[in-house]
Simulated scan of single mutants.
Amino acid sequence: MELQFPSIRSKVTSEEWSVRVDLAAAYRLVALFGWDDLISTHISARVPGNSSEFLINPFGLFFEEITASSLIKVNGVGEKVMDSEFPVNPAGFTIHSAVHEARPEINCVLHTHTVHGVAVSAQEDGILPISQQSGFVLTNLAYHSYEGIALKAAEKVRLAKDLGTANQMVLRNHGLLTCGATVAEAFKYMYTLNMTCQIQLLAQAAGKNLVEIPKDILSSMGQQSKEVTKGVGAAALVWPGLLRRLKRENPGYDV
């Protein structure tokens, strides 16, 4: 049975609705790419015009079911500010509120438990500089040690400190986290970070010596990325195509 949610488009600003549509799309794209973990993990987006509120998934829905209208709006202490029959994931609130509070320029935070991401998060050396994808990741990467399920408010300070100014993070023994100024940016970071982990595991599985990218090349990867996308940014280039794909394969997120 397909769940039906009444549209709230007329109850929010056009700016919030636009963010809701992109966020719902991101949830469904995570499912489409096989990055979801039943009802676990989460993606959040800051509410335009209100820095202390953000949108997050209804705890209990599969990512493939989420719509723009079903997203929950919460305030800075995790209270719902619009009616919803679903609860808020407490671990999700802890992780996302930590980043939103510490990084005012960040408008979207994406967290996954992908098989490849969790596997690499358990490796002592973390991300290795062995692929072009890893070169992009290593210009902007942080690590956070595992502290159990993210329920303690005290962990928020440590997580924010470990993230610093990075937009990509390996959560040790846990998974991956990315963030960006837009939903599209956070999603593109996750795509590259997860692919980096997948390539690394395949390369290691071959049992041969690995060739690492020289440090002088790694240090220029950030500038190379800007050049190859002509300053527009990869996220802005790929997001329209991802939405077209989603409309073909799992329409209905934008209601």
Rank of each mutant, 00 (worst) to 15 (best):
G78I: 08
W17R: 00
L38S: 07
W35H: 08
G135N: 02
L202S: 05
E79T: 05
Q223G: 13
E212K: 12
D36Y: 09
K230L: 13
T192E: 09
T13R: 13
M82D: 14
I39V: 15
V137R: 00
F59Q: 14
G241V: 01
L38D: 09
K230G: 08
D36R: 13
S225L: 14
E105T: 06
K226F: 15
E249D: 09
V170P: 05
H42C: 12
I8L: 10
V118F: 00
N89W: 13
I106L: 03
P240R: 07
S220I: 02
A234E: 15
G76K: 11
K208N: 12
S225V: 07
L237K: 12
K208H: 10
Y189E: 07
V30A: 15
Y253D: 01
Q204L: 12
T182V: 01
F187Y: 15
S10E: 15
L210N: 10
E85T: 10
G180W: 08
I130T: 10
I8E: 09
L201P: 01
L128Q: 08
Q204S: 05
G34P: 11
C179K: 08
A119S: 10
I213E: 08
L71N: 03
C108I: 01
Q198R: 09
E2K: 13
L71V: 04
F54G: 05
F5A: 10
F54S: 04
G180P: 07
L138N: 02
A26K: 07
T94E: 11
V118P: 02
V81Q: 05
E105N: 11
A186N: 07
V255H: 15
S69H: 03
T13D: 12
L29E: 03
A68C: 05
L38N: 06
I56H: 04
T41K: 13
A119V: 01
E65W: 05
V99A: 07
C197K: 04
V228D: 06
A150F: 15
P48T: 06
L163H: 02
I95N: 14
A205Y: 01
Y253H: 04
K156P: 10
N50Y: 06
T192R: 07
A186Q: 09
E15R: 12
Q224I: 13
L159V: 03
N107I: 01
N50V: 02
G117K: 00
F33C: 10
L32T: 12
L163W: 03
D36T: 15
A186M: 11
E185C: 05
I56Q: 03
E155I: 14
